[in-house]
Amino acid sequence: MASFVQKRPIGLKLTIYIFAGLWLLMAAFPFFWTVWGSFKVELDFFSIADWTYALTGDRTRAEYGSAFTGAGYEGAWVQEEFWRNVINTFIICFFVVCTSLTIGTLGAYALSRSSYRYTFFLLITALIFRAMPPITLVTGYMLPFFEWNLWGRLSTTIIVLVAINQPFTLWMLHSFFQSIPKELDESAKVDGCSQFQAFWNVIIPVMWPGVITTGLFSFLLAYNDFIVTAMLLSEENRTMVPQIAAFLGTTYTEGNVMFAVASVVSAMVPVFILVMLFQRQIVSGLTAGAVKG
């Protein structure tokens, strides 16, 4: 294997490692900087007087007696009741993932097992729908939702998020279903299963990796959404992300930027944990769409 041609000269090797190192620094450093800075006071987090204060925590020590403080977190979670938004976020994400997967697996299974022409058109339509900027759809919701008094509720937002993400879910699940041989459900049907029984008892048990990966992406899409949740939820039903955006408006004027910083870090944590636990699934999910082209 290791023929002399394949060995990289030391200069090239060094360049590669430096480049990779620089990229990783670019990708990760801002997050760690913000996590570190969220335990400081505003004067330390921003380099207003002297940037080294961010490291030494001079102002924080002057104000709280130690180099780290949880004041930002206390302000966000207790004073501004950020925990309400956290609960709303998790309610929305839970129901979006469950509904998306239920109707998505049924639809994608049908698409992957039918050999008629219309499956192609349905997939292309889904692709066109995926390209629609969500804000254009939100414009269409406003009037009817106000009229029928659906605006502001968690349930409305859940259904809207499921529908908007359905094209993506369909494409991803479709490519996973394609990789499961059709002979499997045919033999199940020969054994006397109905199509639904074949789907439920034979295909879904071997589809778990695909279902988990797609579920992960539905979760992230719902969790990361700003446009739909910001436009369709009333103030008391707000999720984390629009609440952070609302903090920006109010806290800059009140000098409580650290509340926003603390809530940003709080909202980052679940994503970090997910990436850590499910790195392999995320990578396979991203590539699943690409393999099909």
Binding site: T102, I103, G104, L106, G107, Y109, A110, L111, S114, Y116, L122, A126, F129, M132, T136, L137, V138, T139, G140, Y141, L143, P144, I159, V160, V162, A163, I164, Q166, P167, L170, Q195, F196, F199
Partner: peptide
């Protein structure tokens, strides 16, 4: 069979993607 499998997802997409476009 295809119709019944595909109905829920189609309904969601028609109601919340296709109709809003018409409404817009």
């Amino acid at each position: 069979t295809f119709f019944w499998f595909f109905l829920p997802t189609a309904a969601a997409m028609i109601l919340f993607i296709a109709l809003p476009i018409v409404s817009v």
